[in-house]
Design a protein around this nucleic acid. Structure first.
Lengths: 343, 343
DNA sequence: ACCAGGACTTAAAGCGCTTTAAATTGTCCT
DNA sequence: AGGACAATTTAAAGCGCTTTAAGTCCTGGT
């Protein structure tokens, strides 16, 4: 602590210790110190100890910008997230641990109302991300392909075909299929679906519903209500059904938010769930876990998707893979309290 | 693995273009190109145009790591966030726009189960953040003070005294006070509070409740139930009250999650809200806005907090302020559907 | 005593950009 | 034509670290 304690941070004048300072303190070259600090074999045990002590004493901390510049590699994975999405939050958490395990670091860039995907990706590239992990990208396929030209793109959570980029996602149609199977298994036949709009994901889930219904010979019961990903869409759909008078025995919603809207409308109308009508969502949102909803839903295994995304990046970066790969995981039905045998 | 062209990334394009490549293309020095690209006055209009064109043609993109290293300044604000918090998400959004306006960039570091505040801050510093904006830090005051020695720390959302660092927060006691005022105004007297545990924030809110009750001469009605920030704590507290038999006419919960637990328990017990009991939360969580809850709550004005945080950072960085500053904003009561006159 | 060979260390050349002093060019007077 | 001065442009010195070829020191064997 020979440094003046009051040498407070100020503008650029801050003198955080450099490699050179540590080197000077132990009378070695910066090269040796660098080696020790990165755990590269070579330096003797004695040197190692002295350097580590000196570094600790000085409160030395590596300057990433400098080391990234110096090493050809940055070992940085750029992640684009929608910071408002709880699901993305979960993915990021797992991405962090997965990346750490293989010696990579994450740099996050978030989407906001005023920051579109393009801006976010630019930022990621400016930090020299070696690969781009895009969570739920909505940009058109050729835009993504353009990004991929700058750094390998791994798209997570969305089906994208024929662009030569890596995709990690769950099989949405299969997920909805599992829901239908579960309901049919309980004895339901009149199973109505509340749609999720125009996106790729919504299309897959809708198809999953239709296919499963037909597989069970329930073609006549197929009924898709207009909707989207919001709670109010769920409410509207439910009211529509209630007004119509012919209540199905089960309602499958595009996602949990929408399902909660359905629940709210049914509750208001005095319809018992799951007594009279069973309700199922999708996403295993934190919402669905709230004990007041306790919603049966489908989980997208964030953990696994994250691991596969990191693996894909590493394969491209370290193993020279150039063939695009699509990983499609099987979602998992989570049975909670909103489904039961029909009355 | 050879590190040249082909292994780089498919599409054969060699390395990403450098400043030098742009310079070569227009027959100028890298210095001029740098000047143009950063919009520094000096270069002639003709030069400017040619450089911009060349840069565009080459798809040139500045390498942040290099420019940060070269310029003494990084103009980077490090932000520590809990990626699971919707409130933080909102803050980040506003931080982004506020920072952009003053020419700063954000680097995010997130807290996860395996990444504590220390790690997060280290990362931020390794990227050479010039200031640290910590959202809802929970580390002890002296740890934060230690961080502050490396770069100015702006703590957001938590009261911290005597550490010489900047704080931006809302007055939690005032917020709860507003709730009590609102309820008393409606005619409530038996107002019970569900506590939020041991944190600084919980302490402030509890105090706000007590003070406001006394101010209204309701000392005898002060009743604080044990609880924390979770839904289940709310449920437990509500059940406790229900079992006790003497229902208050209003329940104020530490936060929205907790309030929702209260709502759930009351609903299960067949108690009408707000008919028999009014319920209020805190945070203006997305949850509280769900139409099925439509919870009266208190908003913490994320936008303003974000702006003040950035301003504080800029003052320290660009205007040499060294005196710590505490900004305390007044929270805003948001009256929704869970409060009404007592029966 | 001498040298091969292993164990450590280090000098020095960058990484891609910013920055500043200095050089160049051009303009306009006298 | 010569020179002052402004407008442009550039050479060159870093920023703090990594990397690798080239040392320097020891061993022990002969």
């Amino acid at each position: 602590m020979d440094d003046d304690g009051s040498a407070r941070h100020r503008n650029g004048t801050n003198k955080r210790p450099r490699l050179e300072d540590v080197a000077a303190r132990v009378g070695l070259s910066t090269a040796s110190v660098s080696l020790v600090l990165r755990g590269v074999p070579g330096p003797s045990e004695r040197t190692r100890q002295r350097v580590l002590k000196a570094a600790a004493d000085l409160g030395y901390q590596v300057d990433r910008t400098a080391s990234l510049l110096a090493s050809r590699r940055t070992r940085l994975l750029g992640v684009m997230v929608d910071i408002h999405s709880p699901f993305h939050a979960e993915l990021v958490e797992h991405l962090h641990t997965a990346a750490e395990e293989v010696g990579y670091d994450l740099v996050l860039s978030t989407l906001t109302r005023t920051r579109d995907e393009h801006t976010a990706v630019e930022t990621l590239l400016a930090f020299r991300s070696e690969a781009l992990i895009l969570l739920g990208p909505t940009a058109p396929a050729d835009t993504l392909a353009a990004f991929d030209r700058k750094a390998p793109v791994i798209a997570v959570g969305r089906r994208i075909v024929d662009t030569g980029l890596d995709v990690v996602r769950t099989a949405d149609d299969d997920g909805v299929g599992q829901i239908v199977d579960h309901l049919v298994g309980l004895g339901h036949r009149a199973i109505t679906y509340v749609d999720g709009g125009r996106g790729v994901i919504a299309t897959d889930r809708r198809r999953g519903y239709r296919t499963a219904m037909r597989r069970h010979g329930l073609d006549d019961h197929i009924r898709v209500l207009h909707g989207d990903h919001t709670e109010s869409a769920g409410e509207r759909a439910a009211r529509h059904v209630l007004d119509g008078g012919d209540l199905p025995t089960a309602v499958v919603a595009f996602n949990d938010q929408c399902a909660i809207g359905v629940l709210a409308a049914l509750a208001r109308a005095g319809v018992a769930v799951p007594g009279e009508v069973s309700v199922v969502g999708y996403d295993d949102d934190t919402l669905s876990r709230l004990s007041c909803f306790n919603l049966t839903t489908v989980s997208q295994s964030a953990r696994e998707q994250a691991r596969y995304a990191v693996t894909a990046a590493v394969e491209r970066l370290d193993q020279g893979r150039t063939e695009p790969r699509e990983v499609v995981l099987t979602p998992r039905l989570i049975v909670r309290g909103t489904t039961a045998e029909p009355a």
